[in-house]
Design a binder for these strands. Structure first.
Lengths: 343, 343
DNA sequence: AAGGTTATTGGAAAGGCTTCCACAATATTG
DNA sequence: CAATATTGTGGAAGCCTTTCCAATAACCTT
């Protein structure tokens, strides 16, 4: 069917080894044989067979991306960073979009299949039990993004710190009754954000009230979804009509959008009635004027690829961990201050 | 390094052919040999080598997705449909996200590489010259989504019709000065939407005015991006202060969001000052109350995968073309009517 | 018990490439 | 010009499977 190196070898009156050398510009080959072969292979529009090459070289030039998928805008942006960087390097991306948590193991197993990919980028989810050992055993380079394990390279955001900064900002603006709408505590980032929130509250000697705290019911995306935000806010408002909180720290922008929606349906606005502070700085936050904590998503994608390549080339160094600090982006939903951090 | 069928064969005292048969539950094998082999292969935690298998079977169980990538939310949703469907079928996805138009050919060439994928899903872009012939020559099953070529299966949306319905709706609401903000005319959908808009205008005997028409300057995503929408609207408003249009049909929701932003910055609101009608019904349209034309994105993804599988199994039938009609989703940005189509 | 089936099995060949080893051809040196 | 070093080349072996063909073993028949 397709043209093989044997066809080229016959055409050029050389051995297949020579053809291979010409094609891979190996040093030990005479310039003119090489050119002749190249010319012929162009004429026959030869294409190496990807799998045959992969099998012989023990290298796939492909990496796997395992990421929560839903409509979580966080990932679209990280994905762009990854795509841009990886194209340059001539690699391909095998995408495993996780829609339900039970798919994680399934996808990991597939990606681990011998000879399928050269490395894995694993996102925002806890590495399922047992896979840490397995990954180390088969020595498949793996980078964790937005999640952590001591034995693997990782890139994370200071979630606890970010939540702390966010909440402290609300305190500084003078709010006393500060609630939080959180995603599911199954999610590590959600737990950390909760901790930061509590720390800021404690430090300011403000009371924590269960009445102003909700965890997502909608389990989609671990609770990082709009419906969950809507429902949590609706519930809090409806149950506390006579004594509303003044401000909310919400664990993601997408939930904040839902929460704002719930407020709007109840004729409440931010920041006049309730101040809202999100997390992520997704692209649409700018549009709706949401004050939020920004994560450098694109850069995280780029860095993830860089780390992975490092490790693909040489896996003999200890894990490195990079953390980014989220930055406060002041817009309108908390009321504004005089001195604004750069937006 | 890894366990191979030779290891299993030795362990089980059988030939490699027998091992292979056991693993692929081939009929011609004695039940107990099969069980013994299966048991051993489990014990050694054998994993077939993906590439060796692919090479021998001439089948990769992988398909390529070539799609515009940017932050175009349209694709996130189509992607979900694809991912869900394809996982069930045990296939993997090779993702090629196009950020700049010049990457298209590069990616196509890669995906066409012999033995790399079993089929291609090609999205929303014109198939570059010459590739139609090449695809047919190598007989790689290909489905076009949101774009068209007579010789390939395709799934499209009636863009012309959608734009016509949209514009006619604005006419029916009584608007006379109806502008349009369009994406780049390099894009086929953009051209069709323009045609539909003009047809509705002509039919209503309303004049078309260059003053109320803009094409995206920002070339990112062929002009389907927020900045382009913002800029176009800003320009129109600023140049026509004394004689603003009453309504706009805008070629995508994401541009509409930008346009609304530009209005907001100029203290104009929809629908009070200017009515806005978008296209796509991305998830966030609901949140901001944008009246728009809905494309059944998730279903398009699912159908695309189904068509592709059909063709992977048997490529011997003529191309089939499916088109979906977009439906009008009435929300708030055009003013509301009594009788609302289902939202 | 001999002959004829049928059910299993072993393993070579094929899939298309890279790489290594041995040999041939050419160039260099004294 | 012979001896030696250098360059270039052919092709077998290896990467790991699947698949096909031939061979063996087990089972029936009469």
């Amino acid at each position: 069917m397709g043209v093989t190196i044997y066809d080229i070898a016959r055409e050029a009156n050389v051995g297949i080894g020579t053809v291979s050398r010409a094609l891979n510009n190996h040093p030990k080959i005479a310039a003119k044989t090489k050119n002749r072969i190249l010319e012929i292979s162009r004429r026959l529009s030869y294409q190496p067979h990807a799998y045959a090459q992969g099998l012989a070289k023990r290298k796939t030039n492909t990496i796997a991306l395992i990421m929560p998928f839903f409509t979580n805008y966080f990932f679209v942006e990280v994905l762009q960073g990854i795509q841009d960087k990886i194209s340059d390097l001539g690699y391909d991306i095998m995408l495993y979009g996780v829609n339900q948590t039970n798919q994680v193991e399934e996808y990991l197993k597939r990606a681990l299949q011998k000879g399928k990919v050269d490395g894995i980028l694993f996102f925002s989810m806890k590495l399922p039990d047992g896979f840490d050992a397995k990954l180390k055993e088969i020595q498949l380079p793996t980078i964790l993004v937005d999640t952590y394990h001591p034995d693997f390279d990782s890139i994370t955001v200071q979630n606890e710190e970010g939540a702390y900064v966010a909440t402290r900002y609300l305190v500084k603006l003078g709010y006393k009754k500060i609630g939080m709408i959180n995603a599911s505590l199954d999610s590590e980032p959600a737990r950390m954000r909760y901790n930061g929130y509590r720390r800021a509250l404690d430090e300011a000697k403000l009371p924590f009230s269960e009445r102003y705290f909700r965890i997502s019911k909608h389990s989609k995306a671990d609770g990082f979804n709009r419906e969950a935000g809507y429902q949590a806010m609706a519930e809090i408002i409806d149950k506390n009509r006579e004594d509303l909180p003044e401000a909310f720290f919400i664990s993601s922008d997408i939930q904040a959008i839902g929460a704002l929606n719930a407020m709007k349906d109840r004729k409440l606005t931010a920041p006049e009635d309730i101040a809202i502070l999100g997390f992520d700085d997704i692209e649409l936050a700018k549009h709706i004027g949401l004050t939020t904590m920004r994560q450098p998503m694109y850069q995280m994608g780029v860095l993830a690829v860089e780390k992975l390549f490092h490790r693909i080339q040489n896996n003999e160094f200890p894990p490195s961990h990079t953390t980014f600090s989220p930055t406060l982006i002041v817009r309108e939903t908390c009321g504004t201050e005089k001195k604004q951090p750069k937006s």
